[in-house]
Design a protein around this nucleic acid. Structure first.
Length: 368
DNA sequence: AACAAATTTCCTGGTT
DNA sequence: AAACCAGGAAATTTGT
């Protein structure tokens, strides 16, 4: 197995990489890192569906909520800026419930790794990137309403609308138009909401001012009125690294989307899909939580959050709705390139091919 | 600018 | 039954 490495070495051109931290990396690690607290239930069963994980997470959360007493929505009593992961997940859960989305519409567990101070910096695009376009708009709207309900004033300068901590400088500008939403867009979202499953009467959120919640929120000050915004609109992505109040892991010293140098001088290319996976594997903030070794000795690994990984990959090139199905097709093409090998007996499991192992070795040498 | 490689979308049929 | 997996075809995008 090791024999093929040398011959491959020439075809690979991994030089020293710049140790820069980009926002997408940081945010995703914040989202998806430190989710290693999953109970190791479903023992003997190899496959974890998102649904199972969500059910697990939800039942744990429900149990915790009951233990705290009758108060079901503790996040209501905590300032958004003080939300820990628990409150973030509770809020996300409540959005799903109130909007009749079903608890499996989003990955609730990923919210447990967030903090309120971080979500406060989310743009609409950030929400969409995390949970998909439709639900993302809903979450964005609901979160604004939640903040406003608390009478918070720390939302003021977060505006910029399209400013996104998911966007890199290179593609932020080009995406600007496609992420411009109008009031009509938000209203069109209503068709996504299953009205009949949401019963305000029986809703336990007695102190929720629903009237206010569904009032138009002040996205006007974040979004231009017209779908076609003036050219030359520019924005700089938020930088989160100096935020002292957040509880997420320390800033990344590597980037899943970091450019990769080539042998031709002064050229860089984006990471390939398998390189992206290897980076996730090599990073402890994503390894047990989103992707994990199945058998490291055998170089097999499992995508425990396939949809989240696909969205991450899609966000790289401005396709936030990229599905795992499509992402996986791309991975299968790499069975022939020496980067990956199939483990079709086990779902969501792949094996590193020689190229991936080589790249992994290099990442470790660089010291992650 | 042309050519190649990689990605994305869509699809049919099979497996878990 | 839902979610995956294998790959073919074709359109796009990205890299050389």
């Amino acid at each position: 197995m090791e024999s093929g490495f040398d011959s491959l070495e020439s075809s690979l051109s991994f030089e020293d990489s710049l140790l820069q931290s980009s926002n997408i990396d940081h945010l995703y690690h914040t989202y998806l890192g430190s989710m290693d607290t999953f109970p190791a239930a479903y023992g003997g069963n190899d496959t974890y569906s998102t649904e199972q994980l969500n059910l697990q997470c939800q039942s744990l959360h429900d149990r915790a909520a009951r233990q705290r007493g009758a108060q079901l929505e503790t996040f209501q009593n905590v300032s958004v800026s003080d939300w820990r992961g628990e409150e973030c997940a509770a809020w996300a859960s409540s959005v799903c419930r109130r909007r009749g989305l079903g608890q499996n519409a989003v990955d609730l567990c990923s919210f447990k790794t967030l903090s309120g101070s971080l979500i406060l910096q989310f743009s609409l695009q950030d929400f969409c990137t995390l949970v998909g376009d439709d639900i993302g708009r809903l979450f964005y709207k609901d979160f604004r309403a939640q903040v406003k309900r608390q009478g918070a004033d720390y939302l003021e300068d977060q505006g910029e609308g399209n400013s996104s901590i998911f966007s890199t400088d290179s593609n932020a500008a080009q995406d600007a138009d496609s992420w411009t939403y109008t009031k009509d867009d938000f209203q069109a979202l209503d068709k996504y909401i299953l009205e009949d499953t949401w019963d305000p009467q029986s809703d336990s959120l007695q102190d929720l001012d629903l009237q206010e919640q569904f009032m138009p929120i002040k996205y006007d000050e974040y979004q231009p009125q017209h779908p076609h915004m003036p050219e030359g609109h520019h924005h700089e992505p938020l930088t989160l690294q100096s935020d002292p109040t957040s509880s997420y892991p320390s800033p990344a010293d590597s980037d899943v989307f970091k450019k990769i140098p080539t042998n031709t001088r002064r050229r860089e290319r984006g990471p390939k899909s398998w390189e992206f996976l290897v980076r996730l594997l090599a990073d402890p903030r994503t390894n047990p939580s989103v992707i994990r070794w199945e058998d490291e000795g055998d170089a097999t690994f499992r995508l425990t959050q396939p949809d989240a990984i696909a969205r991450m990959w899609g966000a790289r090139s401005g396709k936030p709705s990229l599905s795992y199905v499509n992402f996986a097709r791309g991975l299968r093409y790499h069975y022939n390139t020496g980067a990956l090998e199939a483990v079709s007996e086990r779902q969501l499991v792949y094996r590193c091919g020689p190229k991936a192992l080589q790249y992994l070795k290099q990442l470790k040498q660089e010291g992650m």
